[in-house]
Design a protein around this nucleic acid. Sequence first.
RNA 1: GCUCCCGUAGUGUAGUGGCCAAUCAUGUUGGCCUUUCGAGUCAACGACCCGGGUUCAAAUCCCGGCGGGAGCACCA
Length: 495
Amino acid sequence: MLERIDSTLTQKKEKVERVHKLPDLPGAVQGKVVMRFAPGPSGPLHLGHTRVAVLNDEYVKRYDGKFINRIEDTNPDKIDPDAYDMIPEDLEWLGIKVHETVVQSERFPFYYDLARQLIKMGKAYICTCPADDWRKMKEESRPCPHHDESVEVTMEKWEKMLAGHYGEEKAVFVVKTDLNHPNPAIRDFVGFRIVTSTPHPRQGSKYCVYPMMNFCVAVDDHFLGLTHVIRGKDHLNNTLRQEYLFNYFGWTMPWYHHYGLVSIPDAILKTSTVGKGIKTGEYSGWDDVRLGTVRAMAKRGIQADAIRAFWVDCGIKEVDIEFSWETLYAYNRDRIDKIADRFSFVPEPQPLDVCGVDHLDSKAPLHPDHPERGYREHHLSGKPIMVFVSEADLTQAIEAGRVRLKDLANVELKAGKSKFIGNDLAILKEKVKIINWVPDSYQSCTVFMPDGSKKVGYVERLPEDEAGKVVQFERFGFVRIGRISPDVEAYYTHN
RNA sequence: GCUCCCGUAGUGUAGUGGCCAAUCAUGUUGGCCUUUCGAGUCAACGACCCGGGUUCAAAUCCCGGCGGGAGCACCA
């Protein structure tokens, strides 16, 4: 301990630029840390999930521990069968190493056993009151008539429950906590319920008694050997409920930590809404660029690395925070700027004739800082030579009278035509603007923007190997190339 | 209504009694540089929720307000 303090003190003096790092986990032992990610399989992962997934992964990697992906599929109403495959795919894309996968619907008999043990301890009862009545009595700190039934009676009712003697909503297994607990959120909670109307996508109608999240979480967190749990603040009260189970069974609790809630502005995240939208054709799929899914981020050219850096930077504090697209984009730009080849794209293209010259050659680097990567070359001829420029640029250029076609020529404009006036870069010192152009060997290109709009224009011919890569359309922004032929489709990343 | 959590610049973050007239990042503005409105570079802007108390000394400890969030589900 003292050594640690000493080293941080000396470090502090030496550090000029401090990189934000996550704090150490209390009681973490190298090689012994076990953590988990516990999504409900209602769809693929979205930005909100990435925080908890990344943070847990960061710690597992730091301590050379184990990362468990626990699929919490105990509510058949909210299961998308495809999610069982999509979640691991998304985790892999995020660079998260999963060491073990647990699916809760495969463990129902195990949960049933523990339920029996709990009944034997007198810590649970089977309630057959109408749900509203039970809830109301709880609010008033009153026990329902079944609260104090004997172990024998309770056990008998439990077996009847399992045997299907009760219909849906006719009986629940309740974990006793403390009806007089000042916090109404902590008083007796439901551990198992009956589900018969919706078959489970994986188990069919094999089971009619379904465990509830709070029961499974406590049981699994213990039996899977978790040492540290990091999750959202919305689970704060759940942890207090789960604590009762740990105490009844005599288990030691892992270290639980709850970070603040994140609000992600302008993000479409809600799985059920998106799922419906996909069915109706409103969205093209889970990777529709308007969505906040991991898939959409990938499609747009957001790097997993940038998302990771963002969450590490946010830390694990309990304060609620607001997600900043600007900051994520800054981290992402930092990563893609180095690797993105540059191309010329002109939205709303307008033809422009360049008179007074027979042919023009253009040679521009794929990346201005890395000429060794090669060049884009165009050899233009014709009488006159025709190029395309964007409508907005053309308007401004006509107003200015002179303009530099980037890496090509200086031209003088009047009445929609232009005249070659040399190639001397000194003209830039005279505040002449540079604009982009494409030759008549262009490809049509549609850029899909995150707000759902499209920018249609021409792009200079792209090498086939740019498909799937992030490139920069000069003076337009970074995009990820979806396809190259027959026409180019690209997804806007950010500026 | 009850219970719990939280409150440092626009956003995120460092800071656990003195080295804090407060760190870093992002953002914004301006300069330089650059054949992109990208990158780089230099500078500026911008914060300890409020009020008491403890102390020689408080962003840091205590109390009270105020503000924000979550939970009180037979969802996760």
